[in-house]
Amino acid sequence: MSNRIIINLVRFIILVLLQVLIVRNINLGTYFIMLPYVLFILSLPFETPRLLILALSFVMGITIDLFYSTPGLHASACVSMAFARYYVLKFVSPRDGYDVVVQPTIEDMGLEWYLKYAGVLIFVHHLLFFYFEVFRFDEFFRTLGRVILSSIGTFLLVYLIQFLFYSKRFSK
């Protein structure tokens, strides 16, 4: 149990630093803004209490806000994502519930399941993030384009991170 807390704490710090020091410097124009730090919320264990997930997402969002000078913006998107996660997990759950030993990763759950799970949540996060950032409707379709392209970018990056860093050894 305490092992899991340490793993998630390390993951939190690594993802914040990755986001702030490396991904923030990748300039692919205004249409590809990648936010792979959401992987932290995606990979919290299945049995984490839902209120704890809300709280952790809020902390994650505020930490990123601190670096991006956007008070409340990332936090709002993260909290919404945590809220949606509970219902998405219910929706995509296998017939006999989640096994205790498996983690919400591509390796454990398969790519198809992960595409449904992470795809929807990343889209929810990016939708709220970009619309609240712009905060008006006269750029509606351009913002929608940014949401969709950035979601794809983030998902690819999340996939890449899992591919490179997660192995059976690490997650147990």
Binding site: L51, L54, F58, D65, P71, G72, S80, A82, F132
Partner: peptide
Amino acid sequence: HHFIFVFLLAQLICFWMMIRG
């Protein structure tokens, strides 16, 4: 419905920060 209320409360805090910002 405590989950929904806690979520709404958290969102309210976020909005408050956004507007204050």
